[in-house]
Design a protein around this nucleic acid. Structure first.
Length: 430
DNA sequence: TCTGGGGTCCTAGGACCC
DNA sequence: TCTGGGGTCCTAGGACCC
């Protein structure tokens, strides 16, 4: 039921970029070094990242921008739309740096990485952590926090502690801690990796509130209530590694491209542009991982936050005749699907395309009656042009050119690191 | 006026098989 | 009144993550 690692002689580290998106913006705006900054989601909808100064002002994570806009203006908070081109590239730089410093790195998310280090060698992990921290900062400009512990779950907890306690300077080694249980007793169960809102509620009915309570919870009960995932978490809290380092992540099983619209969309014509755009984007991602998809799912829905308007949401799954990564084929089927589910008279808020049943393109089954021999050469050329000259340098006409429905990004910063025409300019005065 | 996007893993239950 | 047992595969939905 539980698989435990035999390599108990290792220590896990979690490296976490502090306030990542805000820190990325700050790298290219040194004038904002101590200023409050927030970064918004697509459509400038909600707050998704805050600098420490913004946190101190009491701006919450996930707060709708329109609710805090006045407050933000009053306190001179700097606002950025999310610039994923920039954050993706900065993330890449940080991860490359970590790989140079440590052989075993698992990129866990855009701003976090796990690492596995040999332990027991009378090795000062805290000092080592400070070195990593200083190197990443010097080479990328991004501040990080690091936690060391015998399991991934504890390493996550350690990095949280490293970040929260200013006296620690962003590095915390749980393996060198004299009284781990006291620390666990002072931490709420909701702060544990893998314990979300629902589980927190279930646990509290049993009087389990602190991480220490959870560590000593009854296995059978946890297994029943929180499934094997929950039990694994509990064992990890006890220092038994159940989640291995995954330094070669599997290719994605599903690829989703979906976005809320920047304004009201009712017509089939506009939905057609949007769905074709998302299908093309999903196809690009699919080719980038060398896959082909056998199914395609299209969905549209109205705004559930406006219950006073007529509501409609629907989706359809299309099985493709052949697994493919061809943009025109995927667009064609996505639009067939859209035509089946579209109904006039609604104000749509969101649409999306999902590709599933993905296999590596090398596993493609030939088909005796296939008419088109495929357009992989064309797709390769398309991708190369768009990588070299920027997204949508070449695109399909059906995706539209003005895209008035596209999401709002009123406060977008520049693509400082990925476009020649947007490189930062440094002026020296003597 | 204004509420993100993209993933993973697990379970229960139904369909189907011998 | 009676109606097997055991298995696989698929899907939808829940929960969680950043």
């Amino acid at each position: 039921m539980l698989s435990t690692s035999s390599k108990n002689s290792r220590v896990f580290a979690l490296v976490d970029c502090n306030n990542f998106y805000a820190s990325c913006e700050r790298v290219f705006r040194p004038d904002l070094r101590e200023a409050p900054i927030v970064v918004l989601s697509n459509n400038d909808g909600i707050v998704i990242a805050r600098s420490n100064e913004a946190k101190a002002l009491g701006i919450g994570m996930g707060e709708p921008y329109f609710k805090v806009e006045g407050f933000i203006r009053k306190h001179g908070v700097h606002v950025f739309s999310s610039n994923y081109t920039l954050y993706g590239d900065m993330s890449h730089r940080v991860m490359e740096m970590l790989r140079q410093l440590e052989p075993e790195v698992e990129v866990y998310s855009i701003d976090e990485a796990f690492m596995a280090l040999p332990a027991g060698k009378k090795f000062d992990l805290t000092a080592h952590g400070r070195e990593i921290q200083a190197t990443v900062k010097r080479c990328t400009g991004i501040p990080v926090s690091i936690g060391f512990a015998p399991t991934k779950t504890l390493a996550k907890l350690a990095s949280r502690i490293a970040k929260k306690d200013p006296a620690l300077g962003g590095v915390f080694d749980l393996t060198a801690c004299d009284d781990v249980d006291a620390l666990l007793a002072a931490t709420e169960v909701a702060d544990v990796w893998g314990i979300g809102r629902r589980s927190t509620k279930k646990l509290s009915t049993r009087g389990i509130r602190t991480v220490l309570d959870l560590k000593h919870a009854n296995d059978a009960w946890v297994r029943k209530q929180l499934t094997v995932t929950g039990l694994r978490t509990v064992w990890e809290l006890r220092g038994i590694p159940c989640i291995a380092l995954d330094d070669a992540p599997a290719p994605k099983k599903g690829i989703v491209t979906s976005k809320s619209f920047g304004r009201r969309v009712e017509s089939l014509a506009e939905l057609t542009e949007a769905v074709a755009t998302y299908a093309a984007r999903a196809a690009e991602k699919l080719r980038a991982q060398g896959g082909i998809a056998h199914s395609l799912h299209v969905f549209i829905n109205t705004n559930r936050f406006k219950p006073e308007l007529p509501q409609y949401s629907n989706s359809v799954t299309m099985t493709l005749p052949e697994p493919t990564a061809s943009t025109p084929v995927l667009i064609r089927h996505a639009l067939l699907g859209l035509n089946r589910i579209y109904r006039p008279g609604y104000e749509f808020q969101k649409a999306g395309v999902m590709l599933t049943d993905i296999v590596p393109s090398s596993q493609r089954q030939g088909n005796l009656f296939e008419r088109e021999r495929g357009d992989s050469g064309l797709m390769r050329a398309l991708d190369r042009i768009n990588v070299r000259w920027g997204r949508d340098t070449v695109q399909y006409a059906v995706s539209g050119f003005k895209r008035e429905w596209d999401f709002k990004r009123l406060q977008l910063s520049k693509a400082y690191t990925t476009r020649w025409d947007q490189l930062p300019v440094v002026k020296a005065s003597f």
